[in-house]
C-alpha cells in the first residue's frame, strides 16, 4: 500500500522534473534563436538534413495515401450515387487531417530519431562539453538552428504531402474510376476554403514541427551518455513525438473545426 503510493509519487515527481527540464531547455534554446537567425547557413544545413532528406518518403506516402483514400471513398460513395463528392472527401481529409498528421509522424520517425541520435552521440562523445570549453554556446550553435529548421521544414513537407495526395486521388478517381474531372475539381473547390481549411492544416503542421523537434533535441540532450542510453532516447523520441502529434491533433481539431 505505502510502497504503491511511494512509487506513484516517485513517478509523478520524475515526470514533473522532466517537464521542468524540457521547459528550461526550450527557454534556453529560444534565447539562442537570435544567434541562429544571424548565422542562417546553419539553419539551411539543418533544413537540408531534416527537410530535404525526408522529402522522398513524404512524397511517396502522400501519393499512396491519396490514391487509397480515393479508392476507399469511391466504394462507399458509389452506393449513394455520390461519387462526384469524391474530390471533396479526398481533399478535406488530406488538407485538414492526414497531411499534417502523417507528415508529422513520418517526420518524427525519419528526422526526429536522427536528431536525437546525433545529439545523443555528441553528448556521449563529450562534443557538447568540448564546445562549452571553447566558449561556444551549444544552444546557439547546435540546438537553436535545429529547432528553427524543424519548425520551418514540417509545414513545407505537410503542404507537399497534401498537394501530392490530392494529385494521387485525382489519378485514381479520374483516370482509374472515371469520375468526371470537372466535377471532381469544382466540388472540391466549393467545399475547401483556403483560410478555414488549408491554412488551419498548415497551422497544425507548424505546431507539430515545433513540438516534434523540441522533443527530439531535448531527448538527445537529456539522454544517458552510453550506447544504450542513446538507443533508449531515440526510441523515446519516436514514441513521445508520435503521441504528441496525435494528441495535439485531436485538441486542435476540436478547437478549429467544431464551431
Amino acid at each position: 500500500m505505502f510502497n504503491a503510493a511511494r512509487s506513484m509519487g516517485e513517478w509523478t515527481l520524475a515526470v514533473l522534473e522532466t517537464l521542468g527540464r524540457a521547459s528550461v531547455f526550450l527557454a534556453q534554446t529560444l534565447l539562442g534563436m537570435g544567434a541562429a537567425v544571424r548565422r542562417f547557413s546553419l539553419v539551411i544545413k539543418q533544413v537540408y538534413a531534416s527537410g530535404v532528406r525526408t522529402l522522398s518518403i513524404v512524397l511517396v506516402s502522400g501519393l499512396f495515401v491519396g490514391m487509397v483514400l480515393a479508392l476507399q471513398g469511391y466504394n462507399t460513395l458509389v452506393q449513394f450515387g455520390a461519387e462526384e463528392s469524391l474530390g471533396v472527401v479526398v481533399a478535406l481529409t488530406l488538407v485538414r487531417e492526414l497531411g499534417p498528421v502523417v507528415a508529422g509522424l513520418l517526420f518524427a520517425g525519419r528526422a526526429g530519431s536522427a536528431l536525437t541520435a546525433e545529439i545523443g552521440l555528441m553528448k556521449s562523445t563529450e562534443q557538447l562539453s568540448g564546445l562549452e570549453m571553447m566558449a561556444v554556446d551549444p544552444f546557439q550553435r547546435i540546438f537553436a538552428p535545429r529547432l528553427l529548421a524543424g519548425f520551418l521544414a514540417l509545414p513545407m513537407l505537410a503542404a507537399m504531402f497534401t498537394a501530392v495526395g490530392v494529385l494521387g486521388g485525382h489519378l485514381v478517381a479520374v483516370d482509374l474510376l472515371s469520375v468526371d474531372a470537372g466535377v471532381f475539381w469544382s466540388r472540391m473547390q466549393g467545399a475547401v476554403g483556403f483560410y478555414t481549411d488549408v491554412l488551419s492544416g498548415l497551422l497544425k503542421a507548424v505546431v507539430f514541427g515545433f513540438v516534434v523537434t523540441w522533443i527530439a533535441i531535448f531527448e538527445g540532450w537529456d539522454c544517458v551518455p552510453t550506447p544504450e542510453g542513446v538507443a533508449n532516447a531515440t526510441t523515446r523520441t519516436v514514441v513521445k513525438s508520435s503521441l504528441a502529434v496525435l494528441g495535439l491533433d485531436f485538441v486542435m481539431t476540436a478547437v478549429m473545426f467544431t464551431v
Binding site: V95, L167, Q189, V198
Partner: peptide, 8 residues
C-alpha cells in the same frame, strides 16, 4: 496547387 486548384 492548394490555393488555386484545391481550395476556392
Amino acid at each position: 496547387i492548394l490555393a488555386m486548384k484545391v481550395s476556392n
